[in-house]
Design a protein around this nucleic acid. Structure first.
Lengths: 217, 217
DNA sequence: CATTCCATTTTCGTATACAATTACTCTCTA
DNA sequence: TAGAGAGTAATTGTATACGAAAATGGAATG
């Protein structure tokens, strides 16, 4: 089975994103071996991948630990994300297929339903949101973009942005998704880019409200 | 020694960038084990890193092979690079230290000397050029940016852009470097960004002249 | 002569054992 | 009591062996 490392990757990633491995938590290879029920070799491979996607940080001979975004320059991270996802949305506007647009609509409908139903569908909604963004990046038809984007999209997942939104912010976020779809339908790159930038800036504002950034030095 | 994998990484990278491993060349782990004189474990680790930086591509159960940029969408790659390095230059303009500016000057002087001396100092000049760009990205003071940038900077190294430049283009490239330093001295983000964008667009033009892009489909 | 199928070989994926490095704790001393 | 040092435990880094998947080559068949 060529998926021991894949299995390890998904398991560790889930632990981090769910918050069961909190920021700063050390990722000991032996522990992960037990958790994932595979040997250290695929665990190490999964770890490198997770580090590469920005979910963890790595020090030689000291292993990896879950990234602590509160200690990082969140504004720089979100600026980069704005740049990259904005570019992706612009490219996607002239390349996206009707089938992909239909998928975006379906996901948006799902998320709206989860938001309206008072129950806490946060994890599911987060998953749908991730797929929404991923479809756009895939529609941009640039493998390199996909790979680059993962580095600025994965890390913020530990923040569980959607769960922090106020009701108003949730409504706005859904509106952004609807407007993105409209921009794609129109094939308008600038429009799509502008909405995507708004979407990410809005997310950053919600994050910044919650997380106290460390002063310089 | 924690540097068996590091040693393997540097060796394999050098083989690719020098062209001794040409585009499309299969990177067989056993061969690399012999070449690097370390076991397969660190070789595999080095390979994953090289794949991640975009110097090679990977297929499950089939290993890695050196990236063939002629088969890729070069315009998309360079667009991304423009975006990311332009942003880096803008950030660097307000954060770079005098010592870093001095380093940039020193490297530019070295490159100019290599260009003037008729001998083929291409590999050295390429190294100096890489360091020049790296210092700027470091001056931008965003670890994530550094990591993201590597993915769009490393891959084009296989093209050996500098060696393709005409004498005029070389002069222009040096002028860009000098102008970047001036923009940094002025602390002018927009200026630095504009020059960096020009610098990369110029490189792309030289590349596009040489490489025939495959049609869509 | 082209094609398909099977055996062989090559190569990657995983597990495990060992080496090297780092972190920790306890003791001894000022 | 605070600090330094040595010895021990914990953890990562590397090597090697085995298993699984895929590429290859040749023979049989239409």
């Amino acid at each position: 089975m060529a998926r021991a490392s894949e299995q390890a990757y998904e398991r560790i990633r889930a632990e981090i994103i769910s918050g069961r491995f909190p920021p700063g938590h050390r990722l000991i290879e032996a522990d992960l071996t037990a958790l994932c029920e595979v040997s250290r070799t695929p665990v190490r491979e999964a770890l490198r991948r997770i580090v590469n996607e920005g979910l963890a940080e790595f020090s030689p001979n000291q292993g990896a630990q879950v990234v602590d975004l509160a200690a990082e320059d969140l504004e720089a991270l979100y600026d980069l994300r704005t740049l990259i996802e904005g570019y992706g949305a612009a490219r996607a506007a002239t390349r996206i297929s009707p089938a992909q647009i239909a998928e975006l609509e379906s996901l948006t409908g799902l998320m709206e339903a989860l938001v309206d139903g008072g129950v806490d569908g946060a994890p599911e909604a987060a998953g749908a949101n991730s797929r929404f963004h991923r479809i756009i990046l895939e529609a941009a038809q640039s493998p390199r973009l996909l790979s680059v984007a993962s580095q600025v999209i994965e890390a913020p997942l530990v923040l569980r942005t959607l769960a922090r939104y106020s009701p108003d912010e949730r409504v706005r976020s859904m509106a952004h998704h609807r407007e993105l779809i409209a921009a794609f339908r129109a094939g308008d790159s600038q429009w799509a880019q502008a909405v995507m930038i708004s979407h990410i800036k809005a997310a950053f504002t919600a994050i910044r409200r919650d997380i106290v950034q460390p002063g310089p030095g």
